[in-house]
């Protein structure tokens, strides 16, 4: 019983982490219909900026998002204006390759600046743990979970309660209709891309509290993010959150009976099954249930 509870809590905490690193990907796909292959590079840079502020200026890594979010929002806007906008109307493969190229550039910049050394942040908070009903939990994992849940709440509020958020949703549903209604679609693209990149960098900043990293950081997580976004439905944050929970539960409980080396296999089997059986993901299932 204790083991099952520990596995459940661990899975939920991992879900918070998985969801946080997937929101940016989902937002960018939802609005621009572009798969952001540079997501892993942005995760990595978010981690590096957090580490660099801590290492060079002794800035508490918990405060790093204050700098990371606006910095990467601006970076996202610039990237959209300079590169993505030029290919957005072309075949999907063009934007895919473009952002893959951006990822490689970011990776090589990181190698040039910080070398390939494994970096990690070490603070008393990162080492801190507490016990809940006999189960030992790490504070950083709880923090990441809470940050993920708050991000989801803020995003939902932003998209449903603000004028700009409604405009973003309108563009994601039908860009031509939104244009006809007087929405500046290009501006929405730039801001949505900026928010998506900022969310990915924020996730990277949170991940630096949990994992050591180097310029290749984010590769494995990127694959997991794709699974979650497909599971959740490509353009729904609530779906992404459910996708993250589903994946982390499948991994955690699956690995109780399977070898740990099969952890990634679980993600990819889920991805294939969902693509075949429910191509619109959890969000699609919820929508069809509502219609019924």
């Amino acid at each position: 019983m204790q083991d099952t509870l520990a596995t459940l809590i661990s899975a939920l905490l991992a879900a918070g982490l998985y969801a946080t690193m997937s929101y940016g990907l989902a937002l960018i796909y939802g609005v621009l219909k572009v798969i952001n292959l540079a997501n892993a590079g942005v995760l990595m840079l978010g981690a590096y900026v957090t580490w660099w502020m801590w290492d060079a200026f002794h800035v508490d890594p918990l405060l790093a998002p204050i700098v990371v979010l606006p910095l990467f929002f601006l970076f996202g806007i610039v990237l959209e204006r300079v590169a993505v906008r030029r290919v957005i109307e072309q075949e999907p493969i063009v934007s895919l390759l473009l952002l893959f190229g951006v990822w490689l550039i970011l990776q090589n910049i990181a190698y040039a600046i910080w070398t390939g050394d494994t970096r990690s942040i070490e603070t008393p908070f990162i080492e801190s743990t507490f016990k809940l009903g006999g189960i030992q939990l790490a504070w950083p994992r709880v923090y990441v979970f809470v940050a993920g849940a708050l991000t989801l709440a803020v995003l939902q509020l932003f998209l449903t309660k603000t004028q700009f958020g409604r405009a973003i949703r309108a563009v994601s549903q039908d860009r031509e209709a939104a244009r006809l209604a007087g929405i500046d679609v290009e501006r929405i693209y730039a801001v949505a891309f900026g928010i998506g990149i900022a969310l990915s960098a924020f996730a990277g900043s949170l991940l630096s509290l949990l994992f050591p990293f180097g310029p290749d950081f984010g590769q494995a997580l990127q694959l997991k993010s794709f699974c979650i976004v497909v599971l959740g439905g490509l353009d729904s944050f609530v779906g992404v959150a459910f996708g993250a929970i589903l994946l982390s539960l499948a991994e955690a409980f699956g690995l109780r009976y399977m070898a740990a080396s099969l952890q990634n296999l679980i993600s990819f089997v889920l991805l294939v099954v969902v693509l075949i059986a429910f191509p619109k993901g959890i969000a699609g299932i919820i929508r069809s249930l509502r219609r019924v």
Partner: peptide
Amino acid sequence: NEAFDLHGKDFTPLLQKVKA
């Protein structure tokens, strides 16, 4: 006796097995 993937990120499920 359990293998894990090189350059893994989340070893908590494996470590839970160790704990058990």
